[in-house]
Simulated assay, not measured.
Amino acid sequence: MDELYNQLSIMKLYIHALFLGATQLFFAQETVENKWSGSRPDGHAPISVMGDHTHGKGEFMFSYRYMYMNMEDLNRGSENVPFSNALRPNDIYMVTPTQMPMQMHMLGAMYAPSDKVTLMVMANYLSSEMDHITAMGGTFTTEASGFGDTKIAVLYKFFNSNRQQLHAQVGISIPTGSIDEMDVTPASAPNEVILPYPMQIGSGTWDPELALTYLKQWDKFSFGTQARTTLRLGKNDNEYRLGNRYSINNWLALKATNWLSFSGRFELGAIDRIEGANPALNPMMVITADTANSGMTYANAGLGFNLYAFQGGLKNLRLGFEAALPIFQNMNGVQLRNKETMTLGLQYAL
């Protein structure tokens, strides 16, 4: 709790600093020459960052992203431990996961009814597998897939001057994803049983999503920083809610040519524990059914590139790629370790 409190205190100071900068620049004269420009390969953030930019009045943008994320091996706190550490007789659990690859397809659209306001909507489709090992040495796999929660948001631009921009995002995550995913396990065969929390597709709650993004551009470089939070409200129909999420993302990009940029990104974040519990889950059966094994603090780093068509028939088409790895993760209880994350995406503005 002390670590989470420190994390939140840092985020509050960070947001105050952004607004202090905004008050100094808000009334600066806006001209085409001194505005932040999206018409560069680094005019958008690394492809893994959402809500990083706004659009001018009347502009549309459509996007597709593919993300692959893998979780493998176990952490107890911040230490890597063997699977036997989580199983009887060393612990109370009969089963532990060993690996969980996840794939996500994301479709998004943005439209700017004015120079100050940009509207955004995003839908996604997820598919996950989780491999397990039992205390008796048996193995099995469960699977889940489906459409996830739908996100809508409004982005408001405070200013764009001196090649700097500050904008805020206010949105809501709509619980369109399932929280009742089921599959067959050795203990339930031939019947299906409800799957644990990480294998569910949605949150089951209406979740506000807030973000504040600052951008700065030079001739060959650009910088961005974003504070973001997802707040879980109430409890879902299965008597629990997922943990709130908090993150600070920072990225630096090099404009190599008019059509190519390279980026480096650093993220610091925290996820609260799950509150409540699904009464259909036995928390002593598998570690993922025990809410004590949820929530964490973490740091990630990513490297990527953007390709941008600045002229010709494909003008304003952008291809982005990023590969990210965790550099720190301190988990509540015992959980699967986060491993590599790959994100590939297309964005087309008109």
Rank of each mutant, 00 (worst) to 15 (best):
M285W: 13
A253R: 11
I92M: 14
T229H: 03
F266R: 02
H132G: 10
E72H: 14
P175V: 04
W218H: 01
G333Y: 01
D149K: 03
D42E: 13
N278E: 05
P283G: 10
V154G: 05
I201H: 03
W259N: 12
L319F: 10
F26S: 07
S178W: 04
H16Y: 14
Q103G: 09
Q226V: 01
M331N: 13
N300D: 04
L317H: 09
M94R: 13
R40T: 04
E129A: 11
I152H: 02
N80A: 15
N278A: 00
Y5C: 09
F159A: 02
W259T: 03
S39P: 04
G177M: 10
E192R: 06
L210C: 11
M100A: 15
D42S: 11
I172A: 12
G77D: 09
T229S: 01
D183A: 13
Q29V: 10
S37N: 08
G21T: 05
L119I: 05
G146C: 05
A86F: 05
T54W: 02
L233P: 07
K216I: 10
Y246I: 00
L319V: 07
Q24S: 11
K35M: 15
A289R: 11
R265V: 07
N160P: 11
T230Y: 01
Q217S: 06
P97C: 08
Y246L: 00
L268V: 11
L18M: 08
V193E: 14
E209D: 00
F221I: 08
Y240W: 00
I327H: 08
V286I: 14
P190W: 13
F321C: 05
V81T: 03
W251S: 04
A168M: 00
M182S: 12
K116D: 04
Y66G: 06
M130F: 02
R245Y: 13
L325H: 09
P279A: 01
M67I: 04
L231T: 09
A189K: 10
Y197C: 14
G345K: 14
L126N: 01
N124T: 02
Y14D: 06
L20W: 10
L4H: 08
A301Q: 15
T96G: 12
Q311H: 14
Y111V: 07
T288C: 12
H105S: 08
L254Q: 03
F27G: 15
E267M: 09
Q164F: 01
A153L: 11
S178R: 06
D290A: 09
L242K: 12
K151M: 15
I15Y: 10
T54I: 02
A256I: 11
I10P: 03
K35H: 07
I47A: 14
L346S: 04
